[in-house]
């Protein structure tokens, strides 16, 4: 039986048992951590949905008995109930949030893409580029309130003030652009989210295999043609991911906005169906600020949590909707431009 030529592995079995134990342990540990994360998110969403929903139901019942004109949950949310009336309702805040975010996206996308293009396609890749890259990545770590301070100091006072001097001198000393407004808030948020877009776009561009660029150049395309016809389309899903991240972040920001354009109550919307459609210099309302404001200033204490939860529910819904739209767009793009190679 004992063949001297055969190798003997006495510990094979115990080693296998040990491996299996470790595996079981790791599965349990990672599973538990995941469960914790899922429970937190579910609890958080449940909190908002349940409390917000309960408040809305209660409000509706109240409206019905008192006989006020607001009868549906929807209208209640949009135009404000008994306790929201002072702030003018949620609708202007939703519009403000959406307009601000879209404007921010329109500003940050081209800027971020151009910077990323420079970093990957044009700069030599030497130490200045590396420095720039590190700088950009660190920008993302700066607290957002600092961006607000910068926006107020630079955009509002320096640039806005100059614009007023040049174009709106007749209105002075009443400032037109030299005061917080939609444009400055969008620019501030664009600056805030710029690193996100740059990093995501750069990663997307770097993932495009150089063989695609060479293939295009070998067909007689110039560098610019190659970038616009091959590289950017192929990187579109990554770029869009960056923009989605930027939108998600921007829509949730409140702190810097308090300095550069958000107000508790704005008499008119920054958008209209008549020319000039968009009032860039207007102050506007914002859901995030609305939640803050409600929390701090709503009358009474028993109903406060409910109101805040209902407004939070709306804020989350708006952000999720914006993201879903972007995701659908990305799926479409991905279908057109499948990531090739790797």
């Amino acid at each position: 039986m004992t063949n001297p030529d055969m190798f003997d592995y006495p510990d094979l079995n115990s080693a296998r048992i040990r491996d299996e134990k470790i595996n079981t342990l790791m599965t349990a540990a990672t599973g538990a951590a995941t469960l914790l994360a899922v429970v937190s998110v579910v609890a958080f969403l449940g909190f908002i949905v349940l409390l917000g929903g309960a408040w809305l139901a209660e409000e509706q019942a109240l409206s019905a008995t008192v006989g006020q004109q607001h009868s549906s949950n929807f209208e209640l949310l949009l135009f404000g109930g008994r306790e929201l009336a002072s702030s003018g309702g949620v609708l202007p805040a939703i519009v403000g949030t959406v307009v601000l975010t879209l404007l921010m996206a329109v500003i940050v996308a081209p800027l971020g893409i151009v910077v990323a293009l420079y970093l990957t396609e044009y700069s030599g890749g030497g130490w200045p580029t590396q420095l720039l890259r590190i700088g950009v990545q660190n920008l993302a770590a700066i607290p957002s309130i600092i961006y607000g301070v910068f926006g107020l100091a630079f955009f509002v006072y320096v640039i806005g003030g100059r614009i007023d001097e040049l174009f709106y001198a007749s209105n002075l000393p009443t400032p037109t652009f030299g005061t917080p407004g939609l444009l400055w808030a969008s620019l501030t948020l664009a600056l805030l989210t710029l690193p996100t877009v740059i990093v995501a776009t750069e990663e997307g561009l770097l993932r495009i295999p150089s063989s695609l660029r060479e293939g295009s150049r070998a067909l007689g395309a110039t560098r610019v043609e190659t970038i616009f016809r091959v590289v950017l389309p192929a990187a579109a899903p990554s770029i869009l991911t960056g923009i989605i991240l930027a939108v998600a972040r921007a829509a949730g920001e409140v702190a810097p906005l308090m300095l550069v354009g958000v107000v508790r109550y704005a008499p008119t919307l920054p958008v209209s169906i008549e020319a000039p459609f968009l009032q860039l210099e207007q102050k506007f309302m914002h859901l995030g600020f609305y939640v803050y404001d409600l929390t701090m200033h709503a009358p009474g204490s028993e109903g406060r949590v409910g109101i805040v939860a209902a407004a939070s529910l709306l804020l989350v819904s708006v952000i999720v909707s914006l993201n879903i739209v972007a995701l659908l767009l990305r799926v479409r793009l991905r279908r057109t431009y499948v990531q090739s190679g790797v």
Binding site: P209, L212, E214, G215, S216, V230, P233, T336, S340
Partner: peptide, 11 residues
């Protein structure tokens, strides 16, 4: 020119 690795554009 034709390259070593097939490099069709993602279109």
């Amino acid at each position: 020119m034709v390259f070593q690795q097939p490099n069709p554009f993602p279109m």
